[in-house]
Design a protein around this nucleic acid. Structure first.
Length: 300
DNA sequence: AGCACA
């Protein structure tokens, strides 16, 4: 039934050597108690986030947000101390959240600490901006308006962090009231909803999960790069993906494109899913467009 | 939409 017979190292890798973080990567985020969590499948439930993080030491509270952009879902998890947040980040970052799709958690410090929920902490806090709940939800609340009531996190003075691209990957935004739409991080969206697609097992022809026509390949084709994008900038992001091997960039006249090779198709698929739509500092539109390459990279 | 290297 499931593909358990060909699971690689899958869920076993809760901690990943690729996700070793420097103790203080960004001075701007040093006091922050909240983690920003991306790489979540669109059918994720608040309970799942809570179950995953609430057993961590010094856990405080968490919030799940269906952003309404693409199929993106992000979470904000707050701890009582900065160290506890970092600890949870390093041990859970890179965790395969859904072995069937290869989605991996991408965790970083949030831009600012989430405000404490007012009343109690028992209820799952959710912001749901989705207008069309096609996936993973039985009930249809189509006329649902955006709930923006919770959380107006705006007391931070830290906004633009375009310093010297140290791990410059985009971070989540907490200002859902803001009109800025350029702060969305990883966007694993590309799964076009089939007519009767239910969140769980895709009854596909049995192959591609994201790229539509191109068969899976351990090399990824990366497009929609800003014209100022450098190989180093791209490398920064890709090197955090497990199994990443070689990056080649070329600009053929127009916009640059890149090819990233991974050790295997599982890795390239997971990387594609988690990096799809990632907005780099050099990006100017929708972020990275990633597909399987049409042919595997040759090395010599 | 844009897919090279040998």
């Amino acid at each position: 039934m499931s593909l358990s017979h060909r699971l690689p190292h899958a869920a076993a890798a809760a901690v990943d050597p690729y996700y070793v973080y420097a103790p203080h990567p960004d001075p701007q985020r040093q006091g922050v108690l909240t983690l920003f969590v991306a790489g979540l499948p669109d059918d994720v439930k608040p309970r799942e986030i809570h179950n995953l993080f609430s057993h961590r030491p010094a856990f405080d509270h968490c919030l799940l947000e269906y952003t309404g952009r693409a199929n993106q879902v992000v979470a904000f998890v707050t701890f009582f101390t900065h160290e506890a947040a970092l600890s949870a980040m390093t041990s859970l970052n890179g965790t395969i959240f859904d072995p069937e799709t290869g989605y991996r958690l991408h965790i970083e410090l949030a831009k600012s600490t989430s405000r404490r929920p007012r009343g109690g902490g028992e209820v799952y806090r959710v912001i749901d901006k989705r207008t069309n709940k096609t996936e993973g939800n039985a009930d249809e609340n189509v006329g649902d308006e955006v709930d923006e009531e919770v959380w107006g996190g705006d007391e931070d003075g830290a906004n633009d962090d375009n310093g010297d691209g140290e791990s410059d990957e985009p971070s989540g935004t907490e200002n859902e009231n803001s009109s800025d739409k350029n702060e969305l991080p990883a966007d694993q969206s590309d799964q076009p909803r089939h007519k009767k697609q239910n969140g769980k097992s895709l009854s596909n022809d049995g192959r591609d999960k994201s790229s539509n026509d191109i068969p899976p390949c351990s090399t990824l084709f990366i497009a929609n790069l800003g014209d100022t994008c450098t190989k180093d900038e791209l490398n920064e992001v890709l090197s955090k993906e497990p199994g990443f091997d070689v990056l080649k960039m070329r600009r053929r006249g127009g916009m640059p494109v890149a090819f990233a090779d991974f050790t295997d198709i599982e890795s390239s698929t997971a990387a594609m899913n988690s990096l799809q739509g990632t907005v780099l500092a050099s990006s100017d539109s929708d972020g990275l467009h990633i597909e399987y390459a049409r042919s595997k990279m040759r090395k010599s």
